[in-house]
């Protein structure tokens, strides 16, 4: 890495850390910047976990309110995105639990009404996702939507990285079967 690239990277690190510091201190602009940077990712992760736009939005709203009082516990700003996505995924899973009675599971009608609004090639995926547990969808969302590494997933799921890889492999095998039908 040349010196200008190093300097640019250093600037980014400092600006990220500074932004977090200011947000923790209650700076509205800094908080808004953090929301702006991460809200979409959190929403996408939540949507994959719960399969429903409205529930996903509510989950992310709850996640931000949780984050409001806990931002100060993030000592490394580089962890912020992963932390926020984790909180959003957790909120989505809890929102699903609260959503009772559960929707009947029947092909298209059973998947969140959103399925009917999806483009055709995503409908099969939506149905396959609906056949997984919320915890499995959470794992997929954090891996493939939020881009978590195995150690980050392991940290989130309280598993070993090897265990996470094994569980992911089983999930992929299952989805491969479902989607190949």
């Amino acid at each position: 890495m040349n010196s200008s690239a190093q300097a640019a990277q250093q600037d980014r690190i400092e600006s990220g850390a500074d932004l977090l510091r200011r947000a923790v201190a209650g700076d509205r602009d800094a908080l808004a910047s953090i929301v702006d940077a991460h809200h979409s990712d959190m929403l996408r992760v939540s949507f994959v976990v719960c399969g429903d736009r409205e529930t996903a939005r509510e989950a992310v709203q709850s996640a931000w309110l949780r984050a409001a009082t806990r931002l100060g516990s993030i000592h490394d700003h580089a962890r912020l995105r992963a932390w926020l996505c984790s909180v959003a995924a957790n909120e989505a899973r809890m929102a699903l639990r609260r959503r009772r009675p559960t929707l009947p599971i029947e092909a298209l009608d059973g998947h969140p009404a959103e399925a009917r609004a999806l483009s055709v090639d995503l409908i099969d995926l939506a149905i396959a996702l609906n056949g997984l547990t919320p915890a499995d969808r959470e794992l997929l969302a954090l891996r493939y939507v939020a881009g978590f590494s195995s150690p980050e997933l392991a940290d989130h799921a309280r598993m070993t990285p090897a265990g996470v890889r094994s569980r992911l492999k089983r999930l992929l095998d299952r989805l491969r079967k479902e989607l190949d039908r």
Partner: peptide
């Protein structure tokens, strides 16, 4: 699958109003 999941996740919608959320957090 990763590509499809990304497209599926994008169905969640766009960004929220950052300042409204920031105000709620404060």
């Amino acid at each position: 699958l990763a590509a499809s999941l990304a497209r599926y996740a994008a169905e969640a919608g766009g960004a929220g109003d950052a300042y409204t959320i920031a105000d709620a957090m404060l």
